[in-house]
Design a protein around this nucleic acid. Structure first.
Lengths: 238, 238
DNA sequence: CGTGGTCACGAACACTGTTCTAGTTACGAA
DNA sequence: TTCGTAACTAGAACAGTGTTCGTGACCACG
């Protein structure tokens, strides 16, 4: 809009743009806005809270309007995961630092998933057809190949690592969500979980009882890092 | 029933035992029957088809009746996964064959999950509070410890392996389900998938295009076995 | 026999994703 | 400028989901 149009808009009555009977908004919603709003809802309320109605409310529109922009909910899922993947910064693979590079990309993926609690469930349900998802796969594969991993092992390891990342994040999201719920039955922080494991009958669960501490140990993403490390160690000796 | 009662029953009119107004069955449904029927539905139609109504139909009862036996759907999920785990045969850990033992337990878990397509999604959503789930965890942990893996590494590796198994099975279930759907958009067998990868722009996806074959390679559970092997190799060098 | 507990069932509720229909607006062509 | 069409929006409705509530029937026990 040029300055004249902007001024004309300011001089319009305030209600003019919000006519109750209006069937068209000033500016149509864009798919990008749909994705933005959806991610906003997921970030604030978790993936399970993302219903078409919830999303429509966030966009100040009706749920039926969303179908002008997304095919269905599965399509929306794909757009969401694609957006997450698009935001990952993939390094130029370097044969001297490829391990750290790999850890970095996986950590980014992990953190994206965790920024949007529960969304990795959508990631687990996708066939890898989205271009951005393929970009991340390409990035992981490239790092592994640059690191000297054989093509077949690199291909399968990339698959396994991305799969594990999604599953890990789903589990973390669920545990965190449970921690925020008021239902005391499920409030199991680490000490409580450790206590539960330690209280199992030792005759049936000797090692679980003995190593309850180790089973519940780990700060931050120790488990995640450990598993990635295992895979890297495994690859190093193939 | 003694012989006299059986004869009296046979002489009753056929409708007598099926009184329309009857609010109680001959023999009440048991939780075991609920789980059996639920697993039957999942095996035949997939996890997503398992609704309370579908289950109630399979049991020739009403959906509300199910709540006399299970707390809610999440509780049912837990019972189902518990049943799957209860059927796993855990070996007496042997320090000379622990690797094969571990592969065997994970393969059983994998196969149970795949026998009931999509059910591993329920497994991913559970807090590990069920006794049978804990039994399997104990079994995996024991094998690793017997194999000389340090307790902390064993604890975290057990966690990672079970998580990966569930995720792997979820993905396989989804791919298989898609293969059975008539919607041609999603019918991507291996050759088609390979073709799609190979058709990506080589400038953006050089390695994906070059190694489309490797990315789509693998028979049966090659990928699964590869990943478990990676973890074992990683553990061997810690 | 009376009572309490358990099971089963129907109706209803609140919610989900989605389709269908109709209204409105924007845009391009005549 | 007018008209037609495409695109967008919104409400109603549909079919489905998990679950609750109230009630009836049955069974076991005192």
């Amino acid at each position: 809009m040029d300055a004249r149009e902007r001024r004309a808009a300011r001089h319009r009555s305030p209600a003019a743009g919000n006519d109750v009977g209006s069937r068209r908004r000033r500016a149509p919603i864009t798919p990008e806005q749909v994705v933005d709003a959806a991610l906003g809802v997921v970030a604030a309320e978790g993936y399970e809270a993302l219903t078409m109605r919830r999303l429509a409310t966030a966009l100040d529109t009706g749920p039926a309007s969303l179908y002008a922009h997304v095919v269905n909910k599965a399509d929306l899922d794909e757009l969401l995961i694609g957006r997450l993947c698009a935001e990952l910064v993939l390094p130029e693979p370097d044969p001297t630092t490829w391990r750290d590079q790999l850890r970095g990309v996986l950590a980014q993926m992990r953190d994206q998933y965790l920024r949007y609690p529960g969304i990795s469930r959508a990631g687990l349900a996708l066939a890898p057809t989205d271009r951005e998802i393929a970009r991340v796969s390409e990035g992981v594969l490239s790092i592994l190949l640059t690191g000297g991993v054989a093509p077949q092992a690199a291909a399968w390891a990339a698959d396994a690592l991305l799969l594990y990342t999604a599953a890990y994040c789903l589990e973390v999201s669920i545990v965190r969500q449970r921690a925020t719920e008021d239902d005391a039955v499920w409030v199991l922080d680490r000490e409580e979980m450790r206590g539960r494991l330690a209280a199992l009958p030792a005759a049936t669960f000797p090692n679980t009882v003995r190593y309850a501490g180790e089973l519940t140990a780990g700060e931050g993403h120790d488990r995640f890092d450990f598993t990635v490390g295992l895979v890297l160690d495994g690859l190093a000796h193939r």
